[in-house]
Nucleic acid binder design. Structure first.
Lengths: 338, 338
DNA sequence: CGGGTTCGTGGAATCGATTACATCGACGGG
DNA sequence: CCCGTCGATGTAATCGATTCCACGAACCCG
């Protein structure tokens, strides 16, 4: 592969001049410029990003460590992150943690070794020392969706409190009183927060949230299935299950179907995170939708701000309830038949 | 950030010795080794992958350019690719082309500039000169899922012919005679092949595939919706629509629902690529399942073989039909009630 | 006891870029 | 006419690793 030296030789100038042309430095004659450009063309030269990064100590690359690529919420997030980053002149390297702290650390280490300019993380657990060290060491960093409390890192996330209140109001109106939740891992902020928001909202209606109605999931489908089966085995099973993410909702659907039961008649279902398929599931699933694209873009902007020496602020955007039929007849689109 | 020089100073040896310890070269005394390791520990030193890559001309990184991250089929592929690559000591950088040739080229260029060791591509179009040049120039490369004919690059894919025949047999048995297809872009191999396989299979039953029953889609949901609406507007609409990927099937569901019609009564539906949500859609969707994980792993193995100087062979794995209810009552799980 | 291995180590070149500094010629003003 | 300035260019240092080569010490064998 042709190097800058080859181009210099071909154009009859020094490597310095070639470099200047490539970085359009003002002080280079028109004649030299055209000769260099011609040489670049004939040799099909492309600057070696590795060498350039070594010298300039910038990779123009962002690292994104997400919790699970198979989760549509995160792929949508990843997509918007890459889009915004590209618009700002950065590339993105994605690391998939599969909800495993060890994998998360593997990717963080890898990205740091590659000297990425900044790191976007949705932490799988509460306190990877590696990540805390990196943050303290001054690696530009932004948390997205989930975060680690007590670290001085901007957080870009969406606040589901209001939407959860709306959800509980909706459920209450439909006559449901025994409400259960499939929680995410307690080590994640979203895992804890969604339970708290749910408990609070229930409290406003004088409803309890007994321990038996808090199932411990891990944001993966299988755990949703397992927890739902547990709920169905209870002497007094809940009337509604609220899954803290879309994959656990999928697992819940699996469990209900495996028993030959029906949603919402036998068990109503709602989920955090709205995805396209929820429109066409049987029945369509009521969900809390985050402004995913906006979150990704805001996170990138905050991170790039940090990288380029500007403040880089935390952002919190509201989520909203999308009512469908999985909790009972939808009072909005109420079609009179039955 | 500490460099190898700092480690050398701390340990009281030369950088050469440090390097030798790090790459566990045999010729280094136990005493030196422990001193170096201690220095590495106290400084929290991590080798700079950028510098290392410049010197060794290896990045231990694979590039993966996929057609669409929002397509669950490709995220599953991406996941298995990363997994296998990690097992073999490689990292993966993913580029998302969003089915756009310009974006695809952007990512290929970017990956080449970063001097990745090898490239895994599922080409969005038939002949990006950039990619052809790279292949000719000797960049280790493997096509996965889709490929470009006439290029000397191994192809790892799945053959859907038999499964499509099974599908048509299934449809025929259910009494369907007017079968339509939502095709993928003609510029992609899978876009063409699936139509061909379908046409062939229909031929075996003496069924025609009129042009009006071939809708031109682009593997994205919106095109599936548009094409399906066109089908429904026909004087004689088809009885079945076969979508060449899962997103277009989603679009088809959108279209059917928007008209207040029902699957399969008003229009039956089948899709290429099986995804988890198809189990829970209304109705569950009959689909052709590819061995996605196996494809990803085989592709990585082929690519790494090429990189490390071994042959690196093409692989074709069979796809299989998964019958559900979207084409009419399932003759296998036939539940006697109605 | 001398010469040839072997082993451990350090010096220095190298990868491909960027960039500070030096140089040189032309040009304009006093 | 001379000198200072400015614009264009080249030389060489540098980033952080790897690795070839040389060198000295220890060791072995005859």
């Amino acid at each position: 592969m042709a190097s800058i030296k080859d181009v210099a030789a071909e154009a009859g100038v020094s490597v310095a001049t070639v470099s200047r042309v490539l970085n359009d430095h003002p002080s280079v004659s028109a004649a030299a410029r055209t000769r260099v450009l011609a040489a670049v063309e004939t040799l099909g030269y492309r600057p070696n990003a590795v060498a350039r990064s070594l010298r300039t100590d910038q990779t123009h690359t962002l690292g994104l460590v997400i919790s699970d690529v198979l989760n549509p919420y995160f792929t949508e997030l990843a997509r918007s992150v890459e889009e915004e980053a590209r618009a700002l002149g950065y590339s993105v390297i994605i690391g998939n943690a599969d909800e495993r702290p060890d994998l998360q650390d593997h990717h963080v280490r890898n990205l740091l070794d590659r000297r990425i300019d900044g790191l976007l993380v949705s932490p799988t657990d509460g306190g990877s020392p590696l990540m805390l060290d990196a943050a303290r060491a001054g690696t530009p960093m932004v948390f997205v969706d989930r975060w680690i409390p007590g670290v001085d890192v901007p957080v870009v996330r969406s606040d589901g409190r209001a939407a959860v209140r709306d959800l509980v109001a909706h459920l209450y109106r439909l006559g449901h009183r025994r409400l259960a939740i499939i929680a995410g891992p307690a080590a994640t902020t979203t895992g804890r927060e969604r339970v708290e928001a749910f408990r609070e909202a229930l409290g406003a209606y004088g409803l309890p949230l007994p321990d038996a109605y808090i199932g411990q999931g891990d944001f993966q489908a299988e755990s949703g299935r397992r927890v739902t089966e547990g709920f169905l085995d209870l002497a007094e099973p809940p009337e509604v299950v609220f899954a803290a993410d879309n994959l656990m909702a999928l697992g819940a659907l699996d469990a209900v179907r495996a028993r030959g039961l029906r949603v919402p008649d036998d068990l109503a279902l709602a989920a955090f995170d709205d995805i396209r398929w929820f429109v066409h599931t049987d029945p369509p699933v009521t969900a809390i939708a985050q402004p995913t694209g906006e979150l990704g873009r805001a996170a990138v902007r905050a991170l790039v701000d940090r990288i380029e020496g500007r403040p880089g602020e935390s952002v919190t955007l509201p989520a909203r309830l999308v009512v469908r039929r999985s909790c009972g007849e939808n009072p909005v689109t109420n079609r009179s038949q039955s």
